[in-house]
Design a protein around this nucleic acid. Structure first.
Lengths: 237, 237
DNA sequence: GAGTGGTCTAGACCACCGC
DNA sequence: CGGTGGTCTAGACCACTCA
C-alpha cells in the first residue's frame, strides 16, 4: 500500500507534469488537501514539505504554496544519451561491447543496489566512440528484477542508457564525480597513450523506489568536461 | 525560540562533532529522545528524519538509527559554503589568503564577465583547509560594480562565497567540471606531493543579469568528490 | 515479545499575511 | 479578521528485527 503522503505527492506532481499546475501557480493549501483527500493536516504538511525539499514547490508563510520555476536542481548532469550527444555534434557514433553477462553481486554491489542478500546482476562494459575515438568507458550493473531482458538487447543499436530510460523512468538520481588516474585496463580501452587524468562519474538511478542501475562512466580529461547552466529561480534585485 | 526538533538536531550534531558519537554508533531511538527531551515522538521523528536526509544518519527499520561515515564530498547543485560543509563534518576549517587585490581584466576575463571593454576586477586566491590539510584552492574574480566593498572584507571570518551569497542572490549558475593535472603553482598551494589529478570546477554566478563572480575551484582527487542526489519528478514515486 | 522505525490521526497554539 | 504555513502533542497501528 502506498503511503498517503506519497499519493498526495504523486497527485501534485502529476498536475505539474501535465501542465495543470504551472510555475507560479498556487497549490492547494494544507487544509484544502485535508478535505480533498480526507487526510490529517500532518499528512498534507508532509507531502508539501517534501515536494518543497525536492525543489518543486516554494512555501510562503501566511500566503500559500506555489509551483517553482523550472526545477533548478535537475540540471547539472542530465541523463543524456551519449549517442544523441555525439550525433548532435554532427559526428559519427560507434561503440565496442567488451563484456555483457550475468554476474553475482559482490558485497559492494549488494550495498549499491540496496539488496538484502546476494543476488545476480547484469553487467556490461562498453566503450563509446566519437569518430572512432573512444570518449567514454561505461562500466554498468543492472538490476535483473527491473530489466529482465537486458542481456538480450542489441546494444550496437541502442545504448544501455537509452534502453533503460525507455523501459523505466528515472525518478531519482545520484551522482558522484571524481578525478582519477585511469588504470592500465581503462587506459587500454580508452586508447590513452600519455599520462592523462580522467573524470569518473558514478551514477545510480532509481525507479519506483528500487535501484535500477549503477554505472561508472570514465571520460578522458582531454576529450570531455561536464557542463551546466541554469536559473535558480531566485529573485534578482 | 528555536523549534524543539532543531534543538534535538543540534544536540545530536554536537555529539557527532565532538566525537561523542562516531561513525557506526547508534543514536538514541525515538522513544529514548521522547523521555530525554520530554517531547512527543513526532518531534523526535522529525529530528532524526531530517538528519538522515542531510546525510548524517542512516535508519534501519526494526534495528535503530546510526551515525553515517563522514564522506568528504560537496554538492554539485547547491551553492554551498565550504566552511559550513567542513564544520558539518565535525572538522576544523581554516584558510590562507594568497592574493587579494584589484587587477585589470584580461581578454578572457572580459569575455567571462560579458564586459564590452577593459575593466578593473577584484581577485582573490585562497586555500581552504580541513583540519589543516588543503582541500580546495579557490581562484576567484569579482565584478567591482556588483560588490564594490569586496576587497575590504575579512575573509578569515567569512568565505568569499558566503559574503557574495549574502550580498546578492544568485539567480543563474554555470558550472564546468574537468579533470586536470595541477600545475606547479597549484601543487604547491594544495601541498600535493605525488602526481595526483584534481577536479577543476569552474563556476560563474549571475545576479540581476550581470556576472557577479567567476571562480575556479580546484580539489585534489584524493581528498574530495562532488556529489548530488535528487528527485527528478518522473512518474513513480 | 520487546524494541525499532514508518505512518497516521485529530486536535492545538502560534506568527504571519492580506483584506 | 480569516487563511496560511510552522510547530507540537499524545495517542495509535503496522511491519520489521533481534534475542
Amino acid at each position: 500500500m502506498t503511503p498517503l503522503y506519497a499519493q498526495v505527492k504523486s497527485h501534485i506532481l502529476d498536475q505539474i507534469r501535465s501542465g495543470t499546475l504551472t510555475a507560479g501557480k498556487r497549490v492547494p493549501s494544507e487544509n484544502e488537501l485535508v478535505t480533498q483527500f480526507n487526510i490529517s493536516r500532518m499528512t498534507a504538511n508532509r507531502a508539501l514539505k517534501e515536494l518543497t525539499a525536492d525543489g518543486f514547490l516554494a512555501r510562503v508563510p501566511g500566503v500559500g504554496t506555489f509551483v517553482r520555476e523550472a526545477t533548478p536542481r535537475t540540471s547539472l548532469i542530465e541523463l543524456r544519451n551519449i549517442a544523441d550527444e555525439i550525433a548532435a555534434r554532427g559526428h559519427r557514433y560507434s561503440s565496442r561491447i567488451e563484456d555483457l553477462r550475468e554476474i553475482n553481486a559482490t558485497p559492494n554491489l549488494i550495498k549499491d543496489f540496496e539488496f538484502k542478500s546476494a543476488s545476480p546482476l547484469f553487467h556490461i562494459a562498453i566503450v563509446h566512440e566519437e569518430n572512432g575515438m573512444p570518449v567514454q568507458f561505461e562500466d554498468r550493473y543492472v538490476n535483473p528484477f527491473s530489466a529482465p531482458n537486458f542481456l538480450k538487447q542489441n546494444f550496437a543499436e541502442q545504448t544501455p542508457t537509452a534502453y533503460l530510460l525507455a523501459l523505466l523512468p528515472a525518478d531519482e538520481l545520484e551522482h558522484n564525480v571524481e578525478a582519477i588516474m585511469p588504470d592500465a585496463n581503462q587506459q587500454r580501452r580508452l586508447k590513452i597513450t600519455n599520462v592523462e587524468p580522467c573524470l569518473s562519474l558514478h551514477r545510480r538511478t532509481w525507479s519506483g523506489g528500487h535501484v535500477v542501475t549503477s554505472a561508472t562512466l570514465i571520460y578522458p580529461a582531454s576529450r570531455y568536461a561536464l557542463y551546466s547552466r541554469y536559473n535558480t529561480g531566485a529573485k534578482p534585485q
